[in-house]
Design a protein around this nucleic acid. Structure first.
Lengths: 352, 352
DNA sequence: AGTTTCTGCACCATCGATTGTGCAAGCGAA
DNA sequence: TTCGCTTGCACAATCGATGGTGCAGAAACT
């Protein structure tokens, strides 16, 4: 054999070398050999040869035959965000510990892309799909269902498959309350001094906005209609929302409820180039946790969604396929300003 | 057929339905039919049937036959970090625009895990592998090489395959200089007031530390030996390093060079629970960019590695396989405090 | 010795798509 | 009419692993 690109050893090669049949080799290598009553010594011989020739199973062939692949998919809206990246990190740990191979892809919150991505993954016979923050979870379901692919929604719920999501209402209630309480009694917050930025017409935003309204009303007695500035999940649109607000009022509100860390980046863009003092009195609540975000020069109260619990619950549900789709709420956690919480990375072994 | 889990249509099904042979169906569906002189009308019939029955290619079967998969792998140390997650985001865009399917996995900076992960990916016949920040790039190479898998190192170089990395020396030089210059002439920084935290024995750390030493020496005239506190890539170890330092000196240095955003999180942990005033005079340089990190309550000068350029260069190299392995340096960019830069997410279309 | 029961393994179809090759029918030219 | 070329497609081997089935030889039993 040429040293370059020597073909990988197959069970047929080992079959010839060992004098056993391919099926015997296969059984030995995939661990079913006791069930097939292969002699211990035969097995050892084959395992030895496999080691020697660096045999590794061609997983495409196995996948083709078994019509599953050992791959478990995670579909994210985007990678570049601490909420979703911690989701990926946590997911990886779980999948790895089950001896499967995690595959993480993103679909940009584009319903079409979401479906295409699911289809591609299905073509590789992935075993399960975790759908995170999909814009159109039910559209993805329509793709998974006929293929018999087990799937589950996380973060944003769908009607046709189980969903595990944050308790957005409760989280937003806590957050709104914490923002309001942050102001003392001598100079309490007025209803028209607290605005929500971000959010669009998805389940999470709706819940959060509802809780925001209700809590404002309950604690501040009133809630002016224009208290919400929708700006989707885009830093730039959020920036423009802040600029527009600033244009109109000549200042920012005293307090902000920001719908996600992505919108929070819009606030950063607004801050860039403006004097820091402009923000020294600001109080911000952000629905999402980012360790750096927690230490900004003004108090930032954050909500950390319990990613670990969500993923755990999702695995539980996907393993015991039940009947009618349900949505499960996972309680998030309020994070006081200047908190550096442990994350999924802390599970990895530290090396100095 | 049962409505549940109806098997997916195959070329054989379409072959029966259309009255053509499987090979003809295959050719039509994979686009090689003109080359095979299939009649236009035959093709149209088959395409119609494919549409009707929602045919999708079984990519495992194709992969088995062609011994490639259309998958392109990205192996990261970890997901949960803005540097690496922006890498993933950028990578996805590139791969998608080439009509292939990106898969992102992490290997926890564990050489053994890195090799195992590469092996798994190889078993799925991925077409190319981008190895980011590997602890043992050459170990991964040893796995890829015999399999004939094209691969390239990013962020941390290897000796046996092309590498695309940040110009760490130059970046660290700029950063060190910027930190020092940050102090006015009336109260200039002394050599024993600037410390480096983080880093371990990898190429990037060594370069940065060398530049740190050299620049300190050049600009401050001296460089005490104990100016570097190695603490790997772990927030917790970094936290302990800060605590130990604080224990010994009763205060932090006036200025810090922090080797990565992960170490920066160690600083956050140190800050948590301590009064903000303790850090009001601090000046920090961080080798990595995080938008939130840029707005901390003290000046944080950051270095943004040019992820887009690195990925672009990597694709260029992996497409034109040349001879002897080389390392290519990509210039990073100094980011002034309170900057909110655009990132890979800004490429996505905004939806409000 | 003859029959049953294990042992230990080989045989072979199969998963779905790809691709080199072969060949019949159609057509124009000689 | 016959030769030769083109058109349009079918055939069959192949990628590597899996798992149901069958069968020879040894052991156990009557």
């Amino acid at each position: 054999m040429d040293q370059r690109v020597k073909k990988k050893a197959t069970i047929y090669d080992l079959s010839v070398l060992s004098g056993s049949s391919p099926s015997t080799v296969s059984a030995v290598l995939n661990g079913t050999w006791r069930k097939r009553r292969i002699k211990e010594s035969t097995a050892q011989t084959i395992l030895g040869l496999a080691e020697l020739h660096q045999y590794t199973t061609n997983l495409q062939a196995r996948g083709l035959r078994r019509s599953r692949s050992g791959l478990v998919g995670l579909m994210l809206p985007v990678h570049d965000n601490r909420y979703f990246s911690s989701m990926a990190q946590t997911f990886e740990g779980h999948v790895r510990s089950r001896g499967q191979c995690p595959v993480v892809v993103s679909a940009s919150r584009d319903p079409e892309e979401e479906r295409r991505t699911a289809e591609t993954l299905i073509s590789y016979s992935i075993d399960q799909l975790f759908i995170v923050g999909a814009t159109d979870p039910d559209g993805v379901h329509e793709v998974c269902e006929p293929a018999g692919l087990r799937h589950i929604n996380i973060d944003l719920p769908g009607a046709k498959a189980h969903s595990v999501i944050s308790d957005n209402y409760e989280g937003a209630r806590m957050l709104t309350k914490a923002i309001i309480r942050r102001f003392g009694n001598d100079d309490p917050l007025r209803p028209d001094e607290l605005f929500l930025f971000g959010g669009r017409n998805d389940h999470a935003s709706r819940e959060r906005i509802a809780a925001f309204h209700a809590t404002k009303k309950a604690l501040l007695g009133a809630d002016p209609e224009d208290g919400v500035q929708s700006s989707g999940y885009s830093p730039d649109i959020t920036l423009r929302a802040f600029e527009a607000f600033y244009q109109r009022h000549g200042k920012l509100p005293r307090a902000l409820f920001i719908n996600s860390s992505i919108n929070m980046e819009g606030l950063l863009r607004f801050m860039a180039g403006r004097p820091a003092e402009m923000f020294s009195e600001l109080v911000v609540g952000c629905y999402d946790y980012d360790p750096f975000g927690s230490f900004l020069p003004f108090p930032v109260i954050m909500v950390r969604q319990n990613v670990e619990a969500m993923i755990t619950k999702a695995f539980e549900l996907i393993d015991n396929p039940t009947t009618t789709p349900q949505t499960f709420l996972i309680a998030p956690e309020l994070v006081q300003p200047r908190s550096a919480l442990k994350g999924p990375l802390d599970t990895l072994k530290d090396i100095a």
